[in-house]
């Protein structure tokens, strides 16, 4: 391949922490890879595991979920539920043979613009290492 593989990463960010953190990274002019497509959700606990499965089906090479640090959730406990749920999803995806590097989760607070940069860099690095993910792509139905 002459051109380097540019992964598509879907990021589900919590409105109160990581989205603000990513915003801070932007306003502070921190340079980070442009491979993440951010979807803002109100809480990391809002992320239905099927969102992740659907993202992978629709051509994402990696998924990143990020929310507030435990204890800092705007809704008191949303990220605790997310943690349990997404741990199980990670195990399940891994068990079915999806490269574990395609699934990343992080806690990034509103003041951690630099951490957001590191997280994105790590996710992109992981997705590049895992390669394009075409096996699971949803087939277009054509008649």
């Amino acid at each position: 391949m002459s051109e380097q593989f540019k992964p598509n990463i879907v990021a589900f960010l919590c409105n109160w922490c990581t989205y603000a953190g990513a915003d801070l990274a932007g306003t502070s002019r921190i340079q980070y890879p442009a491979n993440v497509k951010i979807i803002r959700v109100m809480c990391s606990g809002r992320v239905n595991p099927l969102y992740v499965v659907n993202a992978l089906q629709q051509g994402a090479d990696g998924v990143l979920i990020s929310g507030c640090h435990p204890g800092d959730c705007h809704y008191m406990e949303g990220n605790f539920y997310a943690r349990r749920r997404l741990k199980l999803l990670k195990e399940l995806l891994e068990f079915t043979g999806v490269d574990p590097r395609r699934f990343n989760m992080s806690w990034v607070s509103a003041s951690e613009g630099h951490k957001w940069k590191e997280v994105v860099e790590k996710a992109v690095e992981d997705a590049i290492a895992a390669g394009p993910f075409d096996q699971f792509r949803r087939r277009q139905i054509g008649w």
């Binding site: 204890g71 943690r83 349990r84 741990k87 199980l88 990670k90």
Partner: peptide, 16 residues
């Protein structure tokens, strides 16, 4: 119910 409860010290070594 397992998925509708949590413990503050649930494993989170997979989280960045």
């Amino acid at each position: 119910p397992f998925q509708a409860s949590y413990k503050p010290d649930d494993p989170e070594e997979f989280i960045l």
